[in-house]
Amino acid sequence: MSILPDNIEARLAAVAPSGIQFNTTENKKGVCCSWCKLANKDDLLSSAALLKSIGARLSTITILQPKAPSAPPPKEGETPVAPTNFGGTASDGKTFEIDYHFDVDGDTLTLVVYVPYGGDVQSLTTLFRCADWPERELMELYSVIVRGHPDPRRLFIDPNIDNAVLERLVPFSTLVNSATTKGLWEKILANKGSPS
């Protein structure tokens, strides 16, 4: 049985005037998981405030750059239509998707916003003290800007390392500091032959 109020969709729609896309699933044990995509990232703060008023706890924040969907090549004479996310941001593999996962007494509600590459998003720290660390983490992983964060320092990654580590390819040897096993090297040599 869902713990979320029955009218949560209507209430979220009322505080997010640009539009929402809401769906909810319930598993066999009666635990609900809801997803609410916001058409406009600027509706985030009002939606989060509504969730806070019903007792939601910010569980965590996920940020990713979803890759562009593979589309069939356009037919002769047609202009290709650029795919877009809900709300009209380009689905080009560069747009950020930020998922704010809230816990409402066991049920999960996720607010999804799309932020164009180079764009910014409002900090939730004014509503949820615990947004501090997750937002610092997403700022060091991607180049997204969080407006109004009280302490926008690096969280885990050393300031000497370039920003936005998840936006670029980090070679495996760099990632593990070249400490790879002899076994792996021998496997490569066996497949490709010795360099000499």
């Binding site: 569980s59 965590t60 996920t62 990713l64 998922d99 996962h101 615990c130 660390w133 997750p134």
Partner: peptide, 27 residues
Amino acid sequence: LIYYVRMTDSPRPERVKWRVPSFMNWD
């Protein structure tokens, strides 16, 4: 402990994000 997983058409996940309990308790 919460895990979020996103799968696309690849056998590798597009994103896995997890938040461990200690992460919330430091503050």
